[in-house]
Amino acid sequence: MGFLKALAVAGFIGLSAAATTSAMAQENYPSQPVTLIITFAPGGGNDVVGRMFADKIGPALGQPIVVENRAGGGGTTGAAHAAKQKPDGYTILMANGASHLIGPVLFPDVGYDPVKSFDHAGLLGEQYVLLVVNAKSKYQSFKDLVDEARTSERGIKYGLASAASINTVFANRMTKTTGARFAPVIYNGGAPALTALAGGEIEVMISAYSEAAPHIQSGAVRPIAISSTKRIGALPDVPTFAELGYEALNMRNWYGIETPAGTPKEVIGKLNEAIRKAGSDPELIQKLNQIGFVPTPTTPEDYASFLAEQVATWRTEVEAIKPGK
């Protein structure tokens, strides 16, 4: 009896000690640098936005953010890695459409669930799909393009940087909504696709402001319409699809911060606070706007329900771009 009692006491002490340390760990969070997993190679659009935010989230948290690029599997390799880390808030993930909306549907074996495997700290912001044409093109507006595509026999060819991305889903939506004929020409990345557009191999491309900006500024490429709900600061003269009567083509390419599932609420709260502080920094906003990115701070709860809604509504559309469909 004495032995069992002692054991129980020891157990209790142990448990409460564990409880205190973990409570203290949460209170002290962050007491060491935080690793931000970016699921694409350094230098790309994801990486640039991630690093810009990291520079501001770090000081807001009071600890440096170490960026770790784990590229591969169209964003799923890094996300799978992040899902397996300790849920202590020291490993955070930059989630995006590729890792959360597309990858898990295309590859059911990625090893994580975009909603259940993570806790959702907050949205960073969004950028938009931008329809661009070669500067010498006869298409002056989206209407010109749709009219031509309705009557042309083989459809209008457009460039795409990938056969499975947000822009692919957008392209399918565009074909469906307008009822016009469009035919994709797939490139291996944004850079070769834009070179082809600037060189005239293709006349139309579904792109993003962040990648097309240099060509728009040099005059080689002309923006036609953007998928934001209202016009963006960097392109005040470019109409939104909604303005042109295509409400269904509103599409946001969002980025958010996630942690492995089971992260303490306090930690999520602190992260969210830091993200929101960073997202309202005028210097960061100005830099982000320059590449067509708009910060959209949210609460963790709003982000979680937004993400769940996105995952559910995108599934059918992503199924449509699966190989063999």
């Binding site: 190679a41 350094p42 230098g43 962040s210 240099p214 830099k287 590449i291």
Partner: peptide, 25 residues
């Protein structure tokens, strides 16, 4: 053109963009 042709030039483009310079003509 502002087109990075390989991984290294992509990184350099990224570094410039973080500094607020959009690479290109």
């Amino acid at each position: 053109l502002g087109i990075p042709g390989n991984a290294v030039t992509a990184l350099m483009a990224g570094a410039l963009m973080i500094q607020g310079i959009v690479p290109g003509p």
